[in-house]
Design a protein around this nucleic acid. Structure first.
Lengths: 325, 325
DNA sequence: CTGAAAGCGCTAACAC
DNA sequence: GTGTTAGCGCTTTCAG
């Protein structure tokens, strides 16, 4: 069976009209539709796209589909796209740097426009300008590409402020240096603590995985100068951190307060620490709206930045430990 | 700006060779490649697909991308597809019955084959045979379509058995009737309990949402004959059930044992009850392998059924309450 | 082995 | 309005 796959019926289509106006009477129209249905005729979207240059399709690349933050980002765009009669095609990059560019380039050739969430620094993302397709980035960028992002510096600033208010003095930040926004998050925590004459201990998780977070937990918590509170890069890392803390015989929030960012739904089920809502769904919605506007000819290349919102869950505790050393 | 979007360079391509053999010397080849790169030439996959009939693309429709079970199902196929030089295009159905068929049909026309996870009963899924593309279903089906599924009956049977062994006698099942496999899950629990001369109380959650699960929790737990243990349709419902149980002032597992199915990662962070691993990732992998085989001409339409595996987490408790009434 | 020509299914532009 | 034709970018086929 090496023959080409079956094609749709090759007879000429029976367009109701070329101008969109009513061409036949209603009953005739109905008969036509039925005949089309019966013959199994389906217009070939590939051939159509080749002429019109449009696919009625939008691509969205996701760094890791198993991270609830990213799946939230999908929901908004999907709704907006469907409302405008576009189909949203998702591609999971699977956090694989090597796959990122080829997958995006391949996708770009099959869609009208792209939403891209990438870890690439601006300097390495210029090729996106050559895709010849409208792109909206889901992050802050200094490129001439419209983008939608969250104020990351403010997010960690808020968390640090909150922890200070609770009486914590010795605060750690557990980051993930491959993320573009890690530096900003460090800065937010740093700036806030500096106002109180303090400084955060900065740790690195190396990867956004369960194992890496747990290893990092040991490093942070079994260090002689164990922090009273930890600001994690995101909720997923915070969840694993909390789990590992329990394994080490320590209790949250009695022995350490753990905070995250993203407000992922599953945070609510676990021992809940404060988090920051970064409005993933709203970000996605706006990005998609921008893209659809661009496809309609209303291009803008402005970066819109959402403000984060602190979420304090039930069991946030005031500091009960004294600073070591 | 109503002109058509920019196209790739229209000059003729410079195929290294048509037979795949070496046509030019290595240095010349390199120069060519550079020239192609410099001109920004990119072969148009749509035009190519129109001729060859294939797209090197596979579609996967997901019922709800924010359910971690479904995102797990994506990971396996994505890996296998990339390994075979296919791009996996995902579409989120968003649990919307009305969108399902149109989205699948639209996707089918842009890909070489499809993996479909659907809630449609067999009787309403015959149109999938007319897609004229190889399809592998991610569920049990009596259709002449290859499928990969999990033994759902065995899953609830295992959980019921486990709960009986712990001394529970009054066991409830909280299901979700829109799911095709709900009946089988009821049957599994029923069959197991019947062997002990018992019968499960069957409740309905109406929707796989947080709100619905919590409402169901009240109905189950505030009923005069409160069960000693609950088998939930899946882990997501179990998580919300546990959360709501706490809100009602009851404790898990002291007042009630809660179990789920899917072994979603976030179950491990919450108060952990037993669950059943349904090998989501393996299922997806096998399904993709079957599809790729079918695309290579090795069609088979067999249903492969995975066996579930019971996962007992740390804090499963033996029954300490006596049966009411 | 190499180059030109035919044509995939469709839409756009053009004459009638 | 209505029917015809040209041609999108590519692969395949078929003559040179």
């Amino acid at each position: 069976m090496t023959s080409r796959p079956p094609r749709a019926c090759r007879s000429r289509p029976c367009p109701s009209t070329s101008t969109g106006a009513q061409r036949f009477s209603a009953p005739v129209e109905a008969k036509l539709k039925q005949a089309i249905e019966q013959l199994g005729y389906r217009s070939n979207p590939l051939a159509r796209s080749m002429i019109t240059g449009r696919t009625r399709t939008i691509g969205l690349t996701i760094l890791d589909i198993s991270n609830p933050h990213f799946t939230n980002v999908v929901k908004g765009p999907n709704r907006i796209a469907l409302r405008h009669d576009y189909t949203l095609l998702l591609v999971d990059i699977d956090e694989n740097q090597a796959h990122e560019r080829p997958l995006i380039e391949a996708l770009a050739q099959r869609v009208d426009g792209l939403l891209v969430s990438s870890r690439l620094p601006d300097e390495q993302a210029h090729w996106m300008l050559d895709l010849d397709k409208p792109v909206v980035l889901l992050r802050n960028a200094e490129l001439p590409i419209p983008s939608v992002s969250i104020n990351s510096r403010l997010a960690t600033y808020m968390l640090a402020r909150h922890l200070l208010d609770l009486g914590h003095r010795h605060i750690a930040y557990l980051g993930f240096e491959h993320a573009r926004i890690n530096d900003e998050r460090i800065r937010g925590a740093h700036d806030c603590l500096a106002e109180a004459g303090l400084e955060p201990d900065v740790y690195e998780a190396h990867a956004p995985t369960s194992l890496a977070s747990k290893q990092a937990c040991s490093r942070v918590m079994l260090w002689p100068q164990r922090p009273q509170a930890v600001i994690c890069y995101n909720d997923l890392i915070a969840l694993d951190f909390m789990k590992e803390t329990a394994s080490l015989g320590l209790r949250v929030p009695r022995d350490v307060s753990v905070t995250g960012i993203d407000n992922v739904p599953y945070g609510a089920y676990a021992a809940p620490g404060p988090t920051v809502d970064i409005q993933s769904e709203k970000m996605g919605e706006l990005a998609m709206q921008k893209l659809i506007d661009a496809l309609a000819g209303h291009a803008d290349s402005v970066n819109f930045m959402f403000e984060p919102r602190l979420i304090v869950r039930e069991s946030t505790a005031a500091c009960t430990t004294t600073v070591h050393a």
